[in-house]
Design a protein around this nucleic acid. Structure first.
Lengths: 199, 199
DNA sequence: CAAAGTATGGACCAGGCGGTCCGATCGGGG
DNA sequence: CCCCGATCGGACCGCCTGGTCCATACTTTG
């Protein structure tokens, strides 16, 4: 996988882009290798040339890329969720990122569950993305408790779990209703919940 | 479908039970008709005899049944979410119902999204279950605003949407972690959020 | 220019899936 | 007892899908 001419890199890129589009549109199960071929002026041999592991490897690559995109979109807030202002900024950043993706499969947790039955190791890999995300939320809340912005009897880990679940659910309902509002309501609700634990 | 011997009804019952088990275990896509056959001492012809519409009809039947189960488990709270006590009772009932189902595909919204690409009409039918559920939550909150338990500037519909999203997300994360805690955290968080809108 | 490595096309394959069909069997009412 | 519909078994079909293979063309480099 090291020898990569410019042409080859471009082809690989096209494959990834098309596959991403398909997964976001119809889910992993709804994406077929033949559709990728049709939509990219490539052939099966190329797909397996660039992704010897087949569909699993392709999905893994896309999941990794999408994850980095989502995390980047939450910058700089996600790294410093240590104030109410930061949480509000984070909320806005998340909404902005998902606006226009309302009808797409975007929930990592949903992806974990979808892949789990057939590809356990891939599933655990993706679950790691979710866990890192959750951990970032928790880290911010720990800071806030330490700096007395949160009551000392608040449980940062449990609150982070609630926020994370709410976020994933917001994405899920957003998709089924093709409307950003559920996500917005979920996030606003989460912030209200957090504030109820303020000092 | 009217002439149904006792024997026939029993067979139909066995099919539904096995299919339900498989769907809860591995999702709709992960369930095959052959597996149902293997696990029920039946044959393909019987499956199509009792469910002429094939897999779609079978899934529809199961979704309807499971939905009724979930809604029944929330009785009597779900019909009268007009007090803080009722909401707490509801929370407990939901947790109780899903305990032991932590590794199952239980989220209606997730089901809607899973089925959507291949079976649009089935998807909208299942979406109706979700909407009814959501509407019940909203109805309770409307009552609470009317009786001044909620501030007059609270938006019952939007709060209900947040609670619903949180619930579905809790189920999703519950499944991926095979642990009831995410659901519990999500529901407790939702209640805290609601209480922050109390008068 | 020539060789070695990379990129590409597309025919082909095996397996799994939902779904069909038909003949055999059962079982209850006239 | 006999008949007709309900019940049953399982072979079969067509299609789609992920994946393999090999011959051909293109690129780079010495």
């Amino acid at each position: 996988m090291t020898g990569l001419t410019a042409k080859g890199a471009a082809t690989r890129e096209r494959i990834v882009r098309a596959a991403t589009e398909l997964i976001l549109e119809r889910g992993v199960a709804g994406m077929t290798l033949d559709e990728i071929r049709d939509g990219t002026k490539t052939s099966k041999s190329q797909l397996f040339h660039y992704f010897p592991g087949g569909k699993s490897e392709l999905v893994a690559a896309i999941a990794g890329y999408q994850n980095s995109q989502v995390m980047a979109a939450q910058e700089p807030w996600i790294d410093r969720l240590d104030s109410w202002r930061a949480w509000q900024g984070w909320r806005d950043a998340v909404i902005t990122h998902y606006t226009g993706l309302t009808h797409k499969y975007c929930s990592v947790s949903a992806l974990v569950n979808e892949v789990a039955p057939t590809e356990p190791e891939l599933s655990t890999q993706i679950a790691a993305y979710a866990d890192r995300w959750l951990a970032q939320l928790a880290a911010g809340l720990h800071l806030m408790r330490d700096t007395k912005l949160l009551r000392s009897d608040a449980d940062p880990d449990r609150l982070a779990l609630a926020v994370f679940a709410s976020l994933q659910g917001g994405l899920l309902v957003m998709q089924s209703k093709n409307n950003i509002e559920p996500l917005a309501a979920a996030l606003d609700g989460s912030l209200a919940m957090l504030r109820s634990y303020a000092t």
